[in-house]
Design a binder for these strands. Structure first.
Length: 565
RNA sequence: GCGGGUGUAGCUCAGUGGUAGAGCGUCACGUUGCCAACGUGAAUGUCGACGGUUCGAAUCCGUUCACCCGCUCCA
């Protein structure tokens, strides 16, 4: 494997090009111009993805890792993509991220756009102009600086009454003397907070000695002329409002009313938590144990980027590991190292991976109380020489189970016989992107080689390679095709469940070898004249280009050793 | 979301208002027989899409879509 993927955009473009040329990955619905953030997997890509997913499923649920001499207990599930919409309220996906949000670029604060109010305070002169047609009000305003308590109350009352009526005129009046931005659940609340915020100097500037009323507008509907101030800094440091509902919506049933609204899952994890109680009740597992799932997830990303790295439909391999909270730290460390080594086992080089602990301020809502989140990051061509996320291992505490217990009203706590204690277990979650994993395998395998006819060779780990072997008669005659076809049959019976066995008798042998270099096939078996004499074939190694002769009846075992399985 | 760039055959690209092109790849036949060999032949395009200007648009204009790069975003 290459230490470092050739950096920068150039190699990424070449990789995308190769993926299309060789049938790994195509833009989705390409003949209609494609669709931003969606990709289709061709014959080789589908097999590569399947190989990676099968390996993960096997290493989680069938032959799980061993800790302290005992295999870890993990079972599999396959939950529905669409669940009761209340699931996403409990998980926190609907509440916090369904409304337009604005970010303050200076303070890094994020606000719901409908919870920010701009409160405009008009000077005494502006107010007089505004209320010119209202003699009572103007009369009171004339006295404002020396108004009695009763008169001040009356002024306040009049302003309150007429504020709505005159808001349009206020908008046309020009900028208020002072504009203050406040967060609040209502306009009244925001005005009160804004009044408290005004300094003595600002009050003096307004020309009155009592707190003047203001006009409060939600950020999104304030007059265009008013500056969009950040509550944190009171400067124009806000981004434009953005819709942060990352979930795809759909409707269950044919009537499509708002009551039938449902969501495509934005992560597979919740399907595991939803079935926690079912699995405890039916499978005799005991804490600590894990539940694993592979499946599609959907996020309406603001900006899909970097090929399949961030797409809107993607696949996850998530395992939720349930344990007592006292043991969570140990399991977190165990899974971080376990997962890092697993990725090396499928061909990623150690030099291209790092483990990075999340800073406190980037922890997800579900991980705030936990022992931390670690990212296993890969050195992608587009992050080179930096790294980007491949898999996250998070301590989610018992956030999810307790949320579902509260929202559903169902008891899902686990009774621990050994500890004689009922509790909601903590969760350690190794959550990997399957499609990101495929991209990592592609990036790792991509190896430019000017000395080869193909100019590039895909050095997949043999266990991951979509094409396991190719069988090539040197020429398409003299009995060689017959020998080749029989060998292909033998190999497919033995390895067909692991990957493709290629057969081709056309064109020059060099051209066929070159195609297999681009496809990442680890070995080619060539039937030649000597085969007919002594029953041996040539094994052509993809990485070293070395050729060795082995006996025809040893080919199946020989390949088995090479690709594993 | 903002700014910049790109879009012509499967791939890489040429083509600045007048018949749609090249190389590579693909396919067939022949020859050769261990690394994209050679010869002959063949297939393949709404020139990303839509609209406009024009006698005439791949080419000029507008809109839009997709991809790439930089910001932004990435629970």
């Amino acid at each position: 494997m290459s230490d470092v993927v050739a950096g920068g955009a150039k190699s990424m473009e070449e990789l995308v090009s190769l993926c299309k040329r060789r049938g790994f990955i195509f833009p989705a619905s390409e003949i209609y111009g494609g669709l931003n953030g969606f990709w289709d997997y061709g014959p080789l890509g589908a097999q590569l993805k399947k190989n990676l997913a099968d390996r993960w499923w096997r290493d989680m649920t069938l032959t799980p890792p061993v800790r302290d001499g005992k295999p870890v207990s993990i079972v599999g599930v396959d939950s529905s993509i669409i669940q009761n919409p209340r699931v996403w309220e409990a998980s926190g996906h609907v509440g916090g991220f369904s409304d337009p949000m604005v970010d303050c670029k200076e303070s890094k604060q994020r606000y719901r756009a409908d919870k920010i109010f701009l409160v405009g305070f008009f000077s005494l002169d502006q107010a007089k102009e505004l209320y010119a047609s209202l003699e009572d009000a103007v009369a009171l305003l004339e006295k404002a600086p020396d108004a009695s308590l009763e008169e001040r109350a009356e002024i306040q009352r009049l302003f309150q009454t007429w504020r709505a009526e005159y808001s349009q005129r206020a908008a046309n009046l020009g900028l208020p003397a002072i504009i203050v931005s406040e967060q609040g659940d209502s306009a009244e609340e925001a005005v009160a907070a804004a009044q408290r915020r005004l300094s003595k100097r600002q009050l003096k500037h307004l020309g009155v000695n009592f707190t003047p009323p203001g006009w409060a507008h939600p950020l999104v509907s304030a007059p265009e002329k008013w500056p969009r101030l950040s509550p944190a800094t009171q400067t124009e440091s806000l981004t434009a409002p953005r819709d942060f509902n990352l979930m795809f919506q759909t409707y269950v049933g044919a009537t499509a009313s708002e009551d039938d609204k449902a969501y495509l899952r934005p992560e597979t994890a919740q399907g595991i938590f939803l079935n926690f109680a079912n699995i405890v009740d039916t499978t005799r597992v005991r804490v600590p144990f894990g539940i694993a799932q592979i499946g599609k997830a959907f996020r309406n990303e603001v900006t899909p980027r970097n090929f399949i790295f961030r797409s809107r439909e993607f696949e996850q391999m998530e395992m939720e590991f349930f344990c007592h909270k006292d043991e969570a730290r140990g399991w977190l460390d165990f899974w971080v190292e376990e997962r890092r080594r697993w990725w090396m086992g499928v061909g990623l080089s150690e030099a291209n991976m790092i483990v990075r602990k999340h800073d406190d301020d980037e922890l997800a809502h579900y991980a705030k109380a936990g022992a931390g989140t670690y990212d296993i990051e890969y050195r992608w061509p587009f992050t080179h020489p930096g790294f980007g996320e491949l898999e996250g291992v998070a301590h989610r505490g018992n956030f999810d189970l307790s949320q579902h217990e509260q929202h559903s009203g169902k008891k899902i706590a686990y009774f621990d016989q050994e500890r004689n204690e009922r509790y909601l277990p903590d969760v350690i979650e190794p959550a990997a992107g399957l499609t990101r994993g495929v991209l990592a395998l592609l990036c790792e395998a991509f190896t430019p080689d000017e000395s080869r006819a193909s100019k590039v060779v895909m050095k997949f780990h043999p266990s991951m390679a979509p094409i396991k072997a190719a069988v090539y008669p040197l020429v398409n005659k003299d009995g060689m095709p017959e020998v080749g076809e029989k060998l292909v049959g033998d190999l497919r019976r033995r390895f067909g469940h692991l990957g493709l066995i290629e057969y081709d008798a056309k064109q020059s042998i060099g051209k066929r070898y070159a195609r297999m270099d681009e496809a990442g096939c680890p070995v080619c078996f060539t039937i030649d004249g000597q085969t007919l004499e002594d029953q041996t074939v040539t094994c052509r190694d993809r990485d070293t280009l070395a050729q060795e002769r082995i006996s025809l009846d040893r080919v199946v075992d020989w390949l088995g050793e090479k690709i594993g399985g």
